[in-house]
Design a protein around this nucleic acid. Structure first.
Lengths: 175, 175
DNA sequence: CCCAATGTAAAACGATAACTTTACTCGTGC
DNA sequence: GCACGAGTAAAGTTATCGTTTTACATTGGG
């Protein structure tokens, strides 16, 4: 695996598990097995490293939803994500909050990700119901955001609750 | 206002707006207008200060829900909270994640708060529908958790979407 | 064959972190 | 009238922060 990939993977894990500010550069360099000089040649700064990590995470997350055309697919993918990666809340929102909304590159990475997520949910809702429905898409987004955070303290069974609630909302909107 | 209250209020604002780790002790002492010696006499450590802040926030938040007996009340109170305090995600989850789940007093404060919230939602659902319904309460919790985080990037109009979705879930459960 | 690129280790940078200590002031109650 | 508790300011402690720099090793291509 090449250095840059190894660095970004290490950083994503450390930022996710211990927090951005609490993760020092030494833990990043030791974790990735590189020198600090190499780290700075590759990513320039700690803030830029976080922005790159977020962009990479967005790509990976959206890829896991790429083939979803139903609520089952959507919440199935979410459940698989939590099982694989753990559930510690949304890393984009956490990064945005930890930096106080003061770092433009992180605000932008967060905004981009949330726009893509919202768009993707709209497509899935349209595939499931056969028509566009903004209000329905927005409430499914609320369930997705809700399960992302509730799963941290109520466990993975919450994904099934979210799926059943989403189905009911679709039914209720179909009448 | 007495020193301890002033300190806790200041700390809550700074932790919420800039993050826990990113807020230094000097900003806390200057913000509260006290010396560092006094701060440590009162709260002992930065971690204990955060735990105290969280307990106080929980009391205040639960008080704002104290008289709620309907979905309207519940989401009305949430909307008012966001309007008054801003929406930057759940401070309990953020504090828990920022400290990597490694600080017992913070894990406990988070767990206590979430248990109380879940309990309160169960009571409101029972008052609204006339019967206990665990599944329904859990899905309303998902909407509450969802709107808490989605409001940070989709604005306060999301509260109305959450309320309407909650109403539909109740209707759907009443059949 | 050697130059340029890419990496390393390790020291140094100034700033700041959380926290403690020293020395001093003040108002209150006995 | 003075002792004491509660506060202050400010320096000091030890440690770590993000970042840069210096000096050196390895390696692949013209």
């Amino acid at each position: 695996m090449d250095i840059r990939t190894r660095l970004i993977d290490t950083a994503e894990q450390l930022f996710d598990r211990h927090g951005f500010t609490a993760t020092g550069m030494d833990r990043l360099t030791h974790g990735a097995g590189i020198s600090s000089r190499t780290l700075y040649k590759h990513v320039g700064s700690k803030n830029r490293l976080l922005a790159i990590v977020l962009d990479e995470r967005d790509r990976r997350f959206m890829r896991s939803l790429a083939s979803a055309v139903s609520l089952d697919d959507l919440f199935g993918a979410l459940g698989a994500w939590f099982a694989d990666e753990g559930a510690r809340g949304c890393l984009f929102l956490r990064s945005w909050a930890e930096t106080g909304g003061d770092v433009p590159e992180i605000v932008e990475a967060m905004t981009r990700h949330k726009a893509r997520l919202r768009q993707r949910i709209e497509e899935i809702v349209e595939a499931e119901t056969g028509r566009r429905d903004d209000e329905l898409a927005e409430s499914i987004l609320l369930l997705v955001e809700g399960v992302t955070h509730a799963a941290t303290y109520r466990g993975s069974a919450t994904v099934d609750v979210a799926l059943r609630a989403a189905r009911r909302l679709v039914e209720s909107a179909m009448v």
